[in-house]
């Protein structure tokens, strides 16, 4: 417990549960994500991985228990408080979600623009080059391939230098080569001190990650997180 007291968790679940109208999807979830940790989240389809991630950035509120983001209970946050908290969390969705009428560069810069921060052209250009989209800055999102969209979503998720990056099946639409490239980007970010949580079915990707960086694997089964690690 001593390290956790020195570095309070960025995200903490305390006996949290989430129920849809039909029944409980997640129950008795208690865990702490330490700063700079790298977690994979696995489980069968429909087990609640996406719901867990949504609880991690305040899109959903727990129906029981507590979820704490950066030492503040999410249920106590105002709507603006949730918005400001999301600026510290980069999210990569499986379906990416862009503003289709704006070019890739504007979409990637969106988190900076909505928070009123300057968007240095050089930094944006470097970021697009880092994810391999330097030539596609002016392209519109609908013209991108699946892999390009995932990399653009990752660039958007990291442009503000967030403390946490959550990725929901980020390699779901990618071939192995592109999946490795995306993993390399996530590993680089983790080495920069970012907390990473990746929901995935891809066990090969997890094995590959374990060979590069210290990771923990969480498994959701029967509504609970089953595989315990040091962070749990």
């Amino acid at each position: 417990m001593a390290p956790n007291q020195r570095n309070p968790p960025v995200i903490a679940f305390d006996n949290a549960a989430y129920s849809y109208g039909g029944g409980e999807l997640l129950s008795e979830i208690s865990l702490r994500l330490a700063p700079g940790s790298f977690h994979f989240l696995t489980g069968p389809s429909g087990s609640g991985k996406s719901t867990f991630l949504k609880l991690c950035y305040g899109e959903l509120l727990p129906t029981a228990g507590r979820v704490t983001l950066f030492d503040r209970e999410v249920r106590g946050l105002s709507r603006d408080g949730v918005a400001l908290t999301r600026r510290r969390i980069g999210v990569v969705h499986q379906d990416c979600q862009f503003l289709d009428h704006l070019p890739v560069a504007s979409n990637v810069a969106l988190p900076l623009l909505v928070s009123g921060r300057p968007t240095p052209a050089r930094d944006l250009s470097d970021l697009l080059a880092w994810v391999g989209l330097g030539q596609l800055a002016t392209a519109l999102p609908p013209s991108l391939s699946g892999g390009e969209r995932q990399r653009a979503a990752l660039a958007r998720a990291v442009i503000t230098g967030p403390d946490v990056i959550l990725a929901d099946e980020p390699t779901g639409n990618l071939d192995w080569e592109l999946s490795l490239r995306l993993l390399t980007l996530l590993v680089e970010l983790n080495r920069m001190g970012k907390t990473i949580v990746v929901a995935t079915h891809d066990l090969n990707l997890i094995r590959q990650a374990k060979s590069q960086v210290s990771t923990r694997v969480l498994r959701i089964s029967k509504r609970r997180i089953q595989l315990a690690g040091a962070d749990l």
Binding site: R79, D80, R86, R87, H93, F98, L110, P111, V114, T160
Partner: peptide, 12 residues
Amino acid sequence: KVLRLVGATDSY
């Protein structure tokens, strides 16, 4: 939805 995801406030 996208704007909320990237941290835009309601007033923005």
